[in-house]
Design a protein around this nucleic acid. Structure first.
Lengths: 172, 172
DNA sequence: TATTGTTATACTCTATAACTATA
DNA sequence: TATAGTTATAGAGTATAACAATA
């Protein structure tokens, strides 16, 4: 309890932002971020949202999310693997991977094939269309998405950033 | 969210002879990450999850999420602001901010005070307890959380990383 | 008419238990 | 018994529309 007030009222009868700053000084000073500016996790989260946003925009013509792209990429690089292996590698829980695969399979981007060795497991493989879409996606990501990041940071910084993030992801 | 590491499974020179290890001998070489290793967004997301996970652990004694911590921090640095201003600054939508404030207020960490200037808005302020908890949280974050990141990356790299992430968050 | 806080709602992500069919 | 895929479900997080009080 005890609010220890003193500044309970310091509000301004300002015009909402968007409008003309006609009279008096702008009554909308930006807020102080304080120690938030030094919190790595905070910038990490904001940056991640921005990057995913841009990824979605760049790959929009193919209608692929970052997660779906990562699945197709992994299937292409790891033929003969089953659902559990792919899901685990991407940090996706098996139950949640089912609907994801249903969506990709219904778009004819990949298929589930019952393994002959172990009839419990489904071997995942890209379809022809899946390979085509993945190839186009890779090109869009490289020429639009990553290229834009490169432009903002510079090639050297981009690599340094990637190295540090990978290190955190792997060792922290 | 455990990732069930997979990249650590040593170099496995799979026996060249045919197949059928017949029984035993688990054939589980790590998967190829392929172009995923170069995707900034991928490492960004993975790193963010790790960092938030660690934040939760470090601040566990105070039962504060990163989002809640950021709210308390902002209130402390910006007395006299209303819900919309705080929420907007943190990228939280006003409707979603209501339940969040309810939770903080029910724990007596902050209070809503009707503004006398504009009786539509609620001025937000930390309570005494809120200030105390925030102070403790800051200390935990600095001495445990950020300290651990510093140890992993080194002070110079940590700053470089923060700068690049802030730049992406602000300009990308 | 516009804005603040709010409710209701919905959709995505994530997480856990339990079922089935195989092994 | 244990494992792979699946279902059901619950909880966060996030998004939009709309309403009451106030401006």
């Amino acid at each position: 309890m005890t609010v220890s007030k003193a500044t309970a009222d310091a509000v301004k009868p300002s015009r909402a932002s968007g409008k003309a700053p006609v009279d008096g000084a702008a009554e909308n000073p930006a807020l102080q971020m304080g120690e938030l500016s030094e919190l790595l996790g905070y910038s990490l989260k904001r940056a991640q949202l921005k990057v995913f946003e841009d990824f979605l925009r760049c790959v929009a013509p193919l209608q692929l999310t970052p997660a779906q792209f990562s699945v197709l990429l992994l299937l292409d690089n790891n033929p003969g693997r089953n659902q559990t292996e792919i899901a685990n590698t991407l940090g996706i829980l098996r139950p949640n991977f089912v609907a994801m695969l249903d969506a990709l399979e219904s778009r004819d981007l990949c298929t589930r094939v019952r393994s002959t060795n172990d009839r419990r497991s489904h071997i995942l493989m890209l379809t022809e269309k899946g390979r085509t879409v993945l190839a186009r996606a890779k090109k869009l990501v490289a020429t639009k998405h990553e290229a834009r990041l490169n432009e903002l940071l510079g090639p050297a910084n981009r690599v340094a950033l990637l190295d540090m993030l990978s290190k955190i992801a792997a060792e922290f």
